[in-house]
């Protein structure tokens, strides 16, 4: 094992020599089998036959809940959600009270992060901006996962005309400019008068799903040619059940990666739309909006931009870490314990 320095490949101590043994099997050596009394079975190998059989997801949860990566990221996410739901608990200042008298001023008592270009309290705006940003990031990701994931999995798994049609639809959607789409969606009668967080989520989801569909399709195509799929089919499991039970769970890694990064990208994309007058109205605060509005201060007061960007980073970081932990937990080969 010395030539493999990666400690992550956690192998039970006992089987390792067997692998060795296989490699040098050409040599003639005498096989020595120690009596059981000398080397008792290690606890790892013991199977508790009285325990209820666990599903893959339950096993994942068992290993997940004790991982430090998971605990830290979960705590961070809970914090972000708390801030989003109860901003009043975290900030006393009124984020909508902006006076040019305070414009671009540094930190002062009660205003720990200073003021924006328009003279609003940066700290209060970062706190109150969490709601819109987290909602947009989270719900767009969920919508994209559902739509893109379903289409991608079906296209990749069944192939044929279904794949062709879905792939060509994604080609068209990919090529559609987001701005053009957003202009159209925003002027639909239903959205025209009440632009809200949900209009932004719908817009971003409509333009975000093709990417997820592509990635899922690729992962499913890769996974469906694996042996366990054939095994499952031979055992008489239906095609669809095989897809849900075996193919999809084994295709999750790239999907998780794209989802967690895209979460951050969607929050930033909301800023782009808002900046172009296609997103949230100015009265709804969001990190993205504040980042976009800080552009004018970039040369002279970069701190105005830094704080909402930092809040965004921490949120994205916690979701990426969560994604990593979930992926690890779902992968039986890298699961510890």
């Amino acid at each position: 094992m010395s030539e493999n320095p990666t400690p992550e490949i956690i192998e039970p101590v006992a089987p390792a020599p067997k692998v060795r043994a296989g490699k040098i099997s050409s040599r003639h050596i005498e096989h020595y089998v120690a009596p059981l009394a000398e080397t008792p079975l290690q606890s790892v190998d013991k199977v508790d036959e009285t325990a209820e059989p666990l599903s893959m997801w339950a096993q994942a949860w068992r290993s997940l809940r004790i991982q430090p990566l998971f605990i830290i990221s979960a705590l961070l996410i809970i914090l972000v959600i708390l801030v989003a739901v109860f901003p009043g608990l975290f900030a006393k200042a009124d984020p909508t009270f902006c006076k040019l008298d305070f414009a671009r001023q540094g930190p002062s008592a009660g205003h720990p992060l200073g003021y924006t270009f328009q003279g609003c309290d940066i700290y209060a705006r970062v706190i109150y901006g969490a709601k819109a940003s987290v909602l947009v990031g989270l719900f767009t990701t969920i919508a994209v996962l559902i739509v893109g994931g379903t289409f991608g999995a079906l296209a990749g798994y069944y192939g044929g005309w279904l794949d062709a049609v879905l792939a060509r639809i994604t080609d068209i959607f990919f090529a559609l400019p987001l701005i053009l789409g957003a202009i159209i969606i925003m002027q639909l009668p239903a959205f025209r008068e009440n632009k809200s967080i949900w209009t932004v989520i719908i817009t971003l989801a409509i333009f975000g799903w093709p990417q997820m569909a592509r990635i899922t399709r690729g992962a499913v195509i890769e996974a469906k040619s694996a042996d366990y799929v054939m095994a499952s089919r031979s055992l008489g499991l239906s095609k669809f059940k095989t897809l849900v039970k075996h193919v999809v769970p084994n295709s999750l890694a790239p999907i998780i990666v794209i989802a967690t990064i895209s979460l951050g990208i969607y929050i930033v994309a909301e800023a782009t739309l808002s900046f172009l007058g296609l997103g949230l109205p100015p009265s709804i605060m969001s990190w993205g909006n504040d980042i976009a509005n800080a552009q004018i201060s970039l040369r002279n007061n970069p701190a105005i931009l830094m704080w909402p960007a930092l809040a965004l980073s921490v949120t994205v970081l916690s979701f990426i870490m969560l994604g990593d932990a979930v992926r690890d937990a779902l992968d039986p080969k890298s699961r510890k314990g």
Binding site: L100, Q118, A182, L278, I296
Partner: peptide, 30 residues
């Protein structure tokens, strides 16, 4: 879609709102 309008209109809306106690806001057109 042109730079430099948003900032002063926002500032103006804030002033009107702070002085008159009504809600005032930029209505952005793409």
């Amino acid at each position: 879609d042109g730079a430099g309008n948003k900032e002063y209109i926002t500032a103006m809306a804030n002033q009107i709102s702070n002085t008159l106690g009504i809600k005032a806001e930029l209505n952005p057109i793409p």
